[in-house]
């Protein structure tokens, strides 16, 4: 039985204009990500990985082509509607963690749920559960500057998955971590993928991530060069 595609890109092109020069960042990308998938997007710097993520995450609009998330074409959505889509359907994990520095680990994870309008009691249950799962039960009330890089990235993952999004987009999540911490983070993502069915798409240079991802999409010059699914 084929799985439902939750992300579909059809002939997506993105051209940035720098002065009088057009710089193509994506060249007719077609891509489908099934529900519950776990894929790594690799490629050299400038190959279009981040641009691809920006398109899928509704942070940017394609020059041509369409991006569809769970049957919803993003090109027709307003900025507010895109923000709402990101709030309910997309989780982001950034290379530099990008936690809100004035909030504790607990509050960072809670923020998304609060913005969704979830009642405090339900939020407490969900946040405590996810922070326990990512191994930060005892650090819930620490601010980002009181935590290591690996711990901060775990909080970022908790923030990305706490609202049960359709897809989690992780841009170079292990780039700032040592191999041991990076490996532990990957274990955690795989576990969330297996146990909660969360879909993960990871942009990476990290061979370990590529090795452990069941599907690896390789990009070169804004196009998908190879798309391999491991047995």
């Amino acid at each position: 039985m084929t799985k439902e595609n939750i992300v579909e890109l059809h002939d997506v092109t993105k051209i940035y204009r720098q002065g009088t020069i057009d710089v193509p960042a994506l060249n007719g990308v077609d891509l489908c990500i099934p529900k519950g998938g776990f894929a790594a997007v690799s490629g050299p710097s400038g190959s279009g990985k981040t641009t691809l993520f920006n398109m899928i995450g509704g942070l940017d609009r394609p020059t041509s082509g369409s991006v569809v998330i769970q049957g919803q074409d993003l090109s027709s959505l307003s900025q507010s509607a895109l923000a709402k889509l990101r709030l309910f359907k997309v989780g982001f994990v950034f290379q530099a963690y990008n936690l809100v520095p004035v909030l504790t680990a607990y509050e960072n994870a809670e923020l998304v749920l609060a913005m969704q309008g979830m009642p405090p009691a339900e939020r407490k249950k969900r946040v405590t559960k996810i922070l326990t799962e990512v191994g930060l039960k005892d650090m819930m009330h620490r601010r980002p500057y009181e935590m290591s890089g690996g711990q901060q990235q775990r909080v970022a993952v908790a923030r990305a998955v706490v609202a049960h999004p359709t897809i989690v987009l992780a841009d170079e999540p292990t780039a700032n971590l040592d191999s041991k911490t990076g490996g532990a983070l990957l274990d955690m993502m795989h576990s969330l993928n297996e146990h909660h069915g969360t879909t993960f798409l990871l942009a990476t240079h990290d061979p370990m991530v590529m090795e452990r991802a069941p599907r690896v999409i390789h990009m070169v010059d804004g196009a998908i060069a190879t798309d391999q699914t491991k047995d």
């Binding site: 942070l59 507010s80 709402k84 309910f88 982001f92 950034f94 520095p101 913005m115 923030r159």
Partner: peptide, 16 residues
């Protein structure tokens, strides 16, 4: 700027 960008990325609306 970066922090506000992240808040927008994770779904905070312009109005908020």
């Amino acid at each position: 700027t970066k922090e506000l960008g992240v808040l927008k990325a994770i779904g905070m609306t312009p109005r908020r």
